[in-house]
Write a protein that binds this DNA or RNA. Structure first.
Length: 854
RNA sequence: GCCCGCGUGGUGAAAUGGUAGACACAUGAGACUUAAAAUCUCCCGAUCGCAAGGUCGUGCCGGUUCAAGUCCGGCCGCGGGCACCA
């Protein structure tokens, strides 16, 4: 062995693993399986440090589990559909397909040098027709199972680009590309019936005990279960067919505070009135202007239109309430109609104030008076209230009990019923885009909307499209739309919407179990490999991707593509933190408030400050997620070129716990490289020890080795890679100072190589081979610590007097507490501190501590 | 507004209720060198002290306990998620 040269050893071992097919996943019924998956990347063309961290984590788990004897599946693929490819085509010309596949080739080439234990034979991209064809086939199955439907839905419409925009693409109410004011437009869209599964998706969260609590909570909030009363107002003056108005409320206890009713502009009654009354039409049209984004909603002033219709209060038929069309009432929650209780709901209060409606209070703060309100009184959890218009029971004080009593009371009087409502809405998957999976349906004038025939799948995207004009290229393609109805054979038109790319990523984990199957999945492979045992990715996917995947697994089970055991596809989830870096900037020559961002490799960083090469002072800014816009990115390729993959892998796993953000620093990367060099030198030194060398430290070294094995194993098992690495530092330091026999030293460094292998596989293989390890380190069984060696024979116990540490004694580990007590009280320091004071109590925690209380 | 999480040295961080700061980064001192780099060694929470050692110290205030970074209550600060959801 000479110097540590990662560039020599890393490609060498990668070639060895390739030739050996070390990481090819094999369905082996004799062994337990382990499926580890990292969220697959979008092929932007460059890998970044976040990828390195994510895939290294997965790789540590995969390599560790393989060493434990599991049959491991660790695949990689590409989430390859989506808008960036179309944007690139619009900006630079070219074709999304070429752009995407060339990016995939680039990124694969950047990932391979990391030495990840991936089974590349299972690789696919979601834009492969072999993949999206299977997706189309499942779409048709889901249609047959009643899980797909079409309905008109309101979308953000960019009138210049003639396209639907996602909410994120609407900035200040304008299209991000066209800068044109976005309109709300009603389009007929395809939906998945995820809401059928609301209750189940919520209830099953309880079983996901190996998911972060935070993610489960976010999903629960997203599904948004609420309990309330649904009842019908009797109307007067309403058009025929609208003699009842259904409303939903979570606060039936405030029913006596009703002063108006309001319906959504999209409510059937509003739509009916719109057709007959130009004033209503104008108001409703006005409501529809403006985007559907959060900001647009928040800024929108509450506005209403009095329809002239009245409803009778269900508890007091002498009270008639006006019915408004109101812009703040949502059609797709509850019934699209509400009763307004201004005294106890801020929105209703604002509305009532604006339109001069009554504000009758139902309750007041306990001890308070029924005085006119200046804002809605919404009691906090801790506040007690006194009902002044209580209809349901005598001494109801808390919200929940009041609601329960109110529901029971109303039900007993025949007014409505208690219902459970969910916030979760059906999943709209239509996108008016080219670069996505075509929705495999056909519009026929006689048969209506029918699924494409199976034998015609995949419905392929046409290659001859252009992006020089706005709109969906599939819409204006000269021939692609034309087809025959699979039902009657008449001329028909293809659907030109494509699917949301979240559909693609909702089942890729299942496809990895049989990536070349002629059906979406293969029963034996799915049964063997599912579920994903460990899923790893960013917390930004905590809601949508993971919820859609949970729904999709259920839908795949319902349509016979996954076993019942796989309806929760991810047994364990880990959400890793981001890779961050300092930001650097210099003043802008013209605009002082606008900094010029500087990349780390332009900046010379010292302990006290930073400057450019020419001496220009640089402002060191906050440590934030690496991003192109702030230029605070370090290209993994540069790090690999400078120090090798093992250094990059070790560094991203050390110091910070994996769920937290990790800051990339140049000094840290260098220090990691130095450490690996020291390990290399140590290996060299041990390798050149004379054969029969004897030392006095064999027993100590054996104990240190056992402890290292134990603690590194625990660290990896518990996703505490930073702690595992700290133990490896400790063990390396111990080993380099040890005075033991040649055989013991060699044994210890082979174990060190094995323990390092999940993190730094290349240097581990080199050490393993050099020190006479059998076969590949990657395939060697994980070391097991001898439990006898983990127990120390003597322990040092601190002695506290009244909780303050004053002395310590060393005793045999198995000494009984009574004897430790005597020894402690006989200790010179203890006697000095007691100064003759009587001992009230003495606590001996064996192996831990002694506390003397005086 | 609602729901969650987090506050420990100059820095990243450790710590089944039981010796706070393991491990590492940075800084400083030293060895080697003509010199530098590389490498190696040592110090490294604050404060008093020549030292031995003492006192204080995990955002702030209080509580439980023989013992609290850890448990409980109340503040302050930071971060995340959701949000006209009736």
């Amino acid at each position: 062995m000479s110097r540590y040269e990662p560039h020599a050893i890393e490609p060498k071992w990668q070639a060895v693993w390739d030739a050996d097919q070390t990481f090819t996943a094999v369905r082996d019924p004799a062994r337990p399986k382990y499926y580890v998956l990292e969220m697959f990347p979008y092929p932007s063309g460059r890998i970044h440090m976040g990828h390195v961290r994510n895939y290294t984590m997965g790789d540590v788990v995969a390599r560790y589990k393989a060493a434990q004897g599991f049959s491991v599946l660790h695949p990689m693929g590409w989430d390859a559909f989506g808008m960036p490819a179309e944007n690139a085509a619009m900006e630079r010309g070219g074709h999304p397909k070429e752009w995407t596949y060339s990016n995939i080739a680039d990124m694969r080439a950047q990932m391979k040098p990391l030495g990840l234990s991936i089974d590349w034979s299972r690789e696919f991209a979601t834009c492969d027709p072999e993949y999206y064809g299977q997706q189309q086939s499942m779409f048709i199955d889901m249609m047959a199972a009643g899980l797909v439907y079409r309905k008109a839905a309101v979308v953000n419409w960019d009138p210049v680009d003639m396209t639907v925009l996602a909410n994120e693409q609407v900035i200040d109410g304008k299209g991000w590309r066209s800068n044109a004011p976005v309109e709300r437009r009603e389009l007929t869209q395809w939906f998945f019936k995820i809401s059928d599964y609301s209750a189940e998706l919520l209830a099953a969260l309880d079983g996901l005990t190996n998911w972060p609590e935070k993610v489960r909570l976010m999903q629960a909030n997203w599904i948004g279960k609420s309990r309330g009363l649904q009842f019908a107002f009797a109307t007067s003056g309403a058009p025929a067919g609208f003699d009842q108005l259904e409303v939903y409320t979570t606060r039936p206890d405030t029913l006596l505070g009703a002063s108006f009713a309001a319906i959504s502009p999209d409510h059937p009654l509003a739509k009916h009135l719109e057709r007959h009354d130009p004033a209503v039409a104008a108001f409703v049209a006005d409501c529809r202007r403006g985007g559907t984004t959060e900001e647009a909603m928040e800024k929108a002033e509450k506005r209403g239109f009095d329809t002239g219709i009245r409803v009778l209060h269900p508890l007091d038929a002498t009270v008639a309430l006006p019915v408004y069309i109101a812009n703040f009432v949502l059609m797709d929650y509850g019934t699209g109609a509400i009763f307004g209780c201004p005294a106890h709901d801020q929105r209703d209060f604002d509305f009532a104030t604006k339109y001069g409606l009554a504000i009758p209070a139902v309750f007041v703060a306990d001890g308070g008076d029924d005085v006119p309100l200046t804002e809605a009184f919404v009691p906090m959890k801790s506040e007690r209230v006194r009902y002044i218009r209580n209809f349901a029971g005598a001494d109801i004080q808390t919200g929940d009990a009041a609601v329960t009593a109110a529901i029971a009371h109303c039900e007993s009087r025949g007014i409505g019923r208690g219902v459970i409502n969910y916030r979760l809405r059906d999943w709209g998957i239509s996108r008016q885009r080219y670069w996505g999976c075509p929705i495999p349906v056909i519009h026929c004038d006689t048969c209506g909307v029918v699924p494409e025939a199976r034998e015609n799948l995949p419905v392929r995207l046409p290659d001859d499209v252009t992006f020089d004009i706005p709109g969906n290229p599939l819409d204006r393609h000269p021939t692609w739309r034309q087809c025959k109805c699979p039902n009657c054979g008449a001329d028909a038109r293809r659907e030109t919407d494509t699917m949301d790319t979240f559909v693609d990523s909702s089942w890729y984990y299942a496809r990895f179990t049989a990536p070349h199957s002629q059906t979406p999945t293969n029963a034996e492979d799915a049964a063997y490999w599912m579920n994903v045992d460990q899923y790893i990715g960013g917390v930004e996917h905590a809601i949508l991707h993971l919820l859609y995947s949970r729904f999709f697994a259920r839908a795949m089970h319902a349509t016979g593509h996954l076993p019942a055991a796989a309806i929760e596809p991810f047994n364990a989830l880990f959400t890793q933190g981001m890779v961050t870096h300092e930001t650097y900037s210099t003043p802008h020559p013209d605009a002082a408030d606008r900094p010029v961002w500087r990349a780390p490799d332009e900046v010379i960083r010292t302990a006290t400050g930073a400057s450019l090469v020419d001496g220009t002072p640089v402002t060191v800014g906050p440590i934030i997620k690496m991003s192109k816009s702030k230029k605070n990115v370090v290209d993994p390729m540069n790090i690999i070129a400078a120090f090798g993959a093992d250094t990059a892998r070790w560094f991203v796993m050390s110091d910070s716990p994996p769920e937290r953000d990790v800051e990339w620093t140049a000094s840290g990367a260098e220090a990691t490289h130095k450490h690996l060099s020291r390990v290399w030198t140590l290996c060299d030194r041990i390798g050149s020890m004379p054969e029969g060398h004897q030392g006095t430290g064999d027993a100590d070294l054996a104990r240190a080795t056992a402890r290292a094995v134990h603690e590194v194993t625990q660290g990896i098992e518990g996703f505490a890679f930073n702690k595992a690495i700290a133990k490896l530092y400790e063990f390396t330091n111990t080993l380099s100072k040890a005075n033991a026999s040649t055989g013991a030293m060699k044994q210890a460094i082979r174990t060190l190589a094995q323990l390092m292998q999940p993190m730094t596989p290349h240097i581990a293989e080199s050490i393993w081979a050099y020190q006479g390890g059998a076969g590949l380190c990657a395939k060697a069984p994980w070391p097991v610590a001898d439990p006898a060696l983990l127990i120390a024979d003597t322990v040092t116990l601190p002695i506290q007097i009244n909780g303050k540490r004053r002395a310590e004694i060393s005793v045999p580990a198995d000494m009984p507490a009574s004897q430790i007590e005597k020894l402690a009280l006989a200790d010179q320091d203890v006697i000095k501190f007691l100064a003759g004071a009587p001992v009230k109590k003495i606590i001996v925690v064996p192996g831990r501590i002694i506390n003397v209380v005086i």
